[in-house]
Design a protein around this nucleic acid. Sequence first.
DNA 1: CATACGGATAACTTCTTGTTATAGTCTGGC
DNA 2: GCCAGACTATAACAAGAAGTTATCCGTATG
Lengths: 309, 309
Amino acid sequence: MIDAAGLRVMKAISEEGSFTAAALALGYSQPAISQMVRRLEQRTGTVLVERVGRAVRLTEAGQVLARHAGPVLSALDAAEEEVAAIAGLRSGRVRLMAFPSSSATLVPKALALVKKEYPDIQVSFSEAEPPESLAALRAGECDLAVAFAYEGTDIGRGEEDMDLFVTTSLLDDEVRLAVPREHPLATQDSVHLDQLKGDDWIAGCPRCRGHLLQLTADAGFTPHVAYETEDYVAVMGLVAEGLGVSLIPDLILGTAHHKDVVALPIVPSSRRHIVAVTTPDLQRVPAVKATIDALVQSATQRPRSLVTV
Amino acid sequence: MIDAAGLRVMKAISEEGSFTAAALALGYSQPAISQMVRRLEQRTGTVLVERVGRAVRLTEAGQVLARHAGPVLSALDAAEEEVAAIAGLRSGRVRLMAFPSSSATLVPKALALVKKEYPDIQVSFSEAEPPESLAALRAGECDLAVAFAYEGTDIGRGEEDMDLFVTTSLLDDEVRLAVPREHPLATQDSVHLDQLKGDDWIAGCPRCRGHLLQLTADAGFTPHVAYETEDYVAVMGLVAEGLGVSLIPDLILGTAHHKDVVALPIVPSSRRHIVAVTTPDLQRVPAVKATIDALVQSATQRPRSLVTV
DNA sequence: CATACGGATAACTTCTTGTTATAGTCTGGC
DNA sequence: GCCAGACTATAACAAGAAGTTATCCGTATG
C-alpha cells in the first residue's frame, strides 16, 4: 500500500518545505509531487499535508510518514549497496570444491590470484572427488567445482546430467607411469602398458582405479593391484621402494616428486581433462566468474611438470 | 531502484522455496513472480536466483535481498499502521486553543467527551483570545480554535482572511448587563443601555471593550470606563461591590455567578456567535473532526444559563 | 496594484506491473 | 523407460501507475 517512493516524497516535502522544492530535490516535476501526495492521501484515507496559503505543512499523519522514511530508505540503500558490492566484486563468497591433486598448485595459485585482484572476495575451499563435488554443486552446497574426466569418459560418470552444468577447460593432464629408478623400463623414453603386465600395481581413488583397469584392458591384461591408497605421496613412496608401479597424473609431479621415482610417458598416451564446473546461473555471478578466470590463468601460467616429455 | 515489492517477492521465494509457492503466498500469478525476478536481476545486474531443475535457489545476492526484506517491510507496516491509527482515531493529537470564557464549561465538557469516546486521542489545550488563536491556526501552531464574533462583525476582525478557515457554529451567547443587586434597574425584566449612560463601566478584553463602545454608541452615548480587567470573576466582584456595571456574556454566568449580581437582558439584544475554527484540510483530520463534533455536542447539551430570559 | 511564486488540474504518454495462455523441462512413479 | 505432474519461461496483452507539459488559480511581496 505505502511504498518507498511515497515515503521518499513525504520526506522531501518535510525537508524542503514545499512541493516545488521537493520536486526539484528529487528530480521530479511539481505536478508529480502534487499527484503523488494525493494518491497517498487517497490510499491512507488521511490528510497528509495542510495547504495553507502558498505553503504546505505536514499534518501529524504526514509527519509520521516523513519520520519513517529515513530508516526505510536507508535500509533499502543498504540492501542495494550490498548487492552492488557483490555485483562489483567488492564482496562475495565462492564455495569451491576441487579434487585432491588439483589442490597442490592449480587451486592455491588461483586463490592467490583472486585474493590479489579482489581482496574482499571470500573463496572457501574444500577437497572432494568429482562425483561428490558435482553432487554438492547440484545440491547448492558449492558454487564451483574443479573436476576431471579421463579422455573418452564423461565427467559425471554418465549418471549425472552434465547438461545442467557448464564447464571451462583448465588444462590437459597427461597420465604417466611411475616406476622406481631401478626398474628395467626406467631408462626408456616411453612405455607400452603391456610391458608391465607382470608388475604389481598401486591403485588410487575409485575413478583412478577404473581408469587403470580401462587402460590395462585396452592393453590386453588385468593388472595385479597390490596396494590401494588415495594419497599420492604414499604412492610415490611405495613406488620408490620398488613395491609396485602406478599410473600418476603429470599434475601432481610438481609437488609429490620423488627422487627415486621416474615418471614415463605411456603409449598410447592417456590424458585427463581438468575443468571448472558450475551451473549456467552461477557462472554469471561475478565472484564465481572471477574465480574461474583465475583458475584458467593459473592453469595456463602453471609451469609444465618437472618431468617433461 | 529496488523497491519494497521486490524485497517482498525475494523474501517469499526464500521462504516458500519456489516461484509458484511464492506467487500463491503473495496472491500473484506465477509469471508475475518470474518477471519480477527477471526485472530485479536486470536492475541489479546480478543473478539473484539459481534455477536448478524445477527448483529455485537464491544466490548470495538473492539472499541479501531476502534478508533485508524483513526489516524494511516491517518498518513500512509500522508506518502504515501508525497512519491507520491516526485515520482510525486510535491515535492522534489535537492542539486546541479557546478563548478564556469558553474554557469554563464548553471546552472541558468537549474534552471529556473526546476522552471518553477516543481514549487515545491527545487533545492539548491552551487559552487564547480569538486574534491570537487564529494567528496560531494560520501559523500551524494549533489545529482548532474556539473563537467568537459579535453579531454583525467578523471573527477575524476583518483583517484575517476568513475564507482560509472553515467555521462550525457552536452556540449563540447572549450578552447581558451585569448590575449590582441594589442597582435601581436590577428589578427590571430588561434594560435599554441608554438607561446606564450615567453609570461607571467595567470593560474587559480589547474586543469586548470594542463591543461595549459599539453598543453604547448605538444607544447614543459614550460610557465612562472606570475599570478594566479580563478576569470575569473580578468583573463580578467589582459589579457586586457597586463599583460599576458591565456587559457580560451569558456563557460565563454558569461559572462566574455571583449572588449580589443580576444579569439583565438588554434591548436591543446582542449576541456573540461562538464557533469552532479550523482549516479545510485539518477539518478532514479525524481527530480534529471528532473534537469539533464533541464541541458541538457539548454546546447543544449545555444547560442554558442559570439566569434564563 | 502588479508580478512572481507555488499548488491544482487536465490531457496525454510511457512504463510498469499485472494477467492468461502456452511452451519447455525436470522429477518421480508405474 | 516412459508418462504424468509440477514448475519455470515466454509471449501477448490489458490496465493502471506515474510522469510530463501546459495552464489556471490563489497568495504573498515589492
